[in-house]
Amino acid sequence: MSVVLETRGLTKAFGGLVAVNDVSLQLHKGELLALIGPNGAGKSTCFNMLMGQLRPTKGSVHLMGEDITGLSPRVIWRRGVGRTFQITATYASMTVVENVQMALLSHNHQVLKVLPYAHKMHRDRAHELLEMVGMAEQADRHCAVLAYGDLKRLELAIALAHEPTLLLMDEPTAGMAPRERIALMQLTADIVRDQGVSVLFTEHDMDVVFAHSHRIMVLNRGQLIADGNVEAIRNDPRVQEVYLGGGTVFKSEDEAEDA
């Protein structure tokens, strides 16, 4: 399996505080990798370094073998990394389909054009993408009135607009109801399978993590403390101590098997 994303000794210090400490990880093609850990463990900092929002203090990030450390978010996006946000970020004043059209305009280097009508451009492709995430019926609705789960799906469509090889999803199901969570992650898993996209995501809902990820990495105080499949992570005593706790607030193993 080819390596899509690799970090080598990724480190970020804010003043004296080391938020991310020597993190090396590999993400393979077609993999759904979960990054979990307590609040403040450094997950967001990690994400921001991968997306170019933060420059690492030490270490490097490689996409398909190329060093992308320190490139701007826009350049990293052009190289094929899409992202969705923990708190949704969409264009509230536009319709659903226009949100996707905007991403397509950018994908096609057309954002500075002043003569054509924007709403007529890439409409069909935008509808295709909305179809893919199950938002086609709502294409002409005003984005500001969408339900939260639909906004998350719209974000996914936006992220898919430039055919990314890698998707970074920051708490993709935060704020969603259980069924919506499952539906969204199922959708993500389908996209991974059908399009060969790789996904790295963070998540606090262990039901989602255990049900959908191929592999899990655990971050604590900036360091990777575990890396393995669902079962290994569930039963890792250190992970239980710093993060999972006694397991009263997510499905037990038996329940998960029943489901």
Binding site: G175, H204, V249
Partner: peptide
Amino acid sequence: EPSEGIAPVIVEQMV
């Protein structure tokens, strides 16, 4: 929604 976005171990404390 007190448990939203909180690590399971903290949610247990909240309980």
